[in-house]
C-alpha cells in the first residue's frame, strides 16, 4: 500500500533507498522508451539523422588537424600531437557538459509526464544516461579514429579509457541531478550553469596542458573533472595515468552522484506541482 503524507521522505532513509533501487530496476524499459521517444521525435524530420551526429565531432577533429598542420596550434609541453590533445579535450568536455545540462532540463522537458502521470524519477535519470551514452558513441569513435590516424593510439590504453569513460558522465550527471529540482522551480540555475561551463572549459586542461598561472594549476589539480579528463586522454594515447587523484575523484563523484540521486528522488513530488 502506498502512503502519501506531508512528512518529509528524507527521514525515512531506508525506505527511500529501497524505493530508489526498485525504481532503477523497474524503470529500465520505461527509460529506454523515453530515450527512444526523444530520439525518434528529434530524428523525425531528419533524412540523414545519424550522419549529423557523426559529422559534428568529425568536423571538430578535422578543424584541429588542419590547424595543427598549418602550425596555428603547437605541441609545446604535450606528449602527443596537438590535434589529438585538443580533440580529446573538447569532445570529453562536450560529454561532461552534456551530462550536466541534460538532467537540468529533464523535469521541465517531461513536464506532462511529471505532472500528469506517476512516473518514477529514476526513469528520467536513466533516460538521460541512455541519451548521453548514445551521443558518446560517435565521439568515442572519432577519438579512436583521430588518435589512430595521427599515430597516438594505445590499444590497451584505449580499452582502459573505455572502462574509465563513464566516470566523466557520472560526474556530469551528479552535478546535473543535484541541481535539477532547483532548476525546475527557477530556471536561473540552468542559465548560470550554462554560463559557468564556458569559462570553466578554458580554465580546465581542455585546450592547453599548462595554464601558466599557479592559481589555475592549483584549481586543475583539485578539480575532479580536470583530473578525470587528463587521465582519460593520457590513458587512450599513452596508456599512463598522468595526474594523481583519480581514485579520490571517482569515489568523491560517486558519493556526489548518490547524494544527487537521493535529492532528485525526494524532490520530484515537491517540484511536480511547480513544473
Amino acid at each position: 500500500m502506498k502512503i502519501y503524507t506531508a512528512e518529509a521522505e528524507v527521514l525515512q532513509f531506508r525506505h527511500v533507498w529501497t524505493e530508489m533501487i526498485r525504481g532503477i530496476i523497474h524503470s529500465r524499459y520505461l527509460a529506454y522508451r523515453l530515450f527512444l521517444k526523444d530520439l525518434r521525435a528529434e530524428y523525425s524530420r531528419l533524412k540523414f539523422s545519424l550522419v549529423w551526429d557523426f559529422l559534428e565531432p568529425l568536423m571538430l577533429a578535422l578543424v584541429f588537424i588542419a590547424l595543427m598542420r598549418s602550425g596555428v596550434v603547437s605541441d609545446r609541453g604535450i606528449a602527443m600531437p596537438p590535434a589529438v590533445f585538443i580533440t580529446f579535450g573538447v569532445l570529453l568536455w562536450m560529454t561532461f557538459s552534456e551530462a550536466v545540462t541534460m538532467p537540468l532540463g529533464v523535469v521541465g522537458k517531461s513536464r506532462h509526464l511529471v505532472t500528469q502521470t506517476s512516473i518514477v524519477p529514476e526513469a528520467l535519470i536513466l533516460s538521460v544516461v541512455w541519451r548521453v551514452a548514445f551521443n558518446s558513441i560517435f565521439r568515442i569513435a572519432i577519438l579512436a579514429i583521430v588518435a589512430a590516424a595521427l599515430g597516438s593510439l594505445s590499444p590497451v590504453g584505449f580499452l582502459k579509457f573505455l572502462l574509465l569513460f563513464p566516470a566523466i558522465v557520472l560526474l556530469g550527471l551528479a552535478l546535473g541531478i543535484l541541481l535539477a529540482p532547483f532548476n525546475t522551480i527557477y530556471n536561473d540555475i540552468g542559465r548560470f550553469v550554462n554560463i559557468l561551463l564556458r569559462p570553466l572549459m578554458y580554465a580546465s586542461p581542455v585546450l592547453y596542458a599548462r595554464s601558466m598561472h599557479p592559481l589555475l594549476d592549483t584549481f586543475n589539480a583539485c578539480s575532479p573533472v580536470s583530473i578525470v579528463l587528463v587521465n582519460l586522454r593520457s590513458l587512450a594515447t599513452r596508456n599512463v595515468l598522468e595526474q594523481p587523484g583519480l581514485l579520490a575523484s571517482c569515489v568523491g563523484m560517486s558519493l556526489l552522484f548518490l547524494v544527487g540521486w537521493f535529492i532528485f528522488h525526494v524532490s520530484i513530488p515537491v517540484v511536480a506541482e511547480r513544473a
Binding site: K2, Y4, T5, H112, Q116, E273
Partner: peptide, 29 residues
C-alpha cells in the same frame, strides 16, 4: 501521488491510473 498533501495522509492499495489529461506524455511527432 503526483503532488504531496500539506496535511493528512492518503493510502492507496494497488496500481493507480489517472486520466487527468488524455494522452499525457504523447509525442505528436
Amino acid at each position: 501521488g503526483l503532488i504531496k498533501p500539506d496535511g493528512g495522509r492518503i493510502m492507496v492499495d494497488g496500481r493507480v491510473q489517472a486520466l487527468i489529461a488524455l494522452g499525457a506524455g504523447f509525442n505528436p511527432k
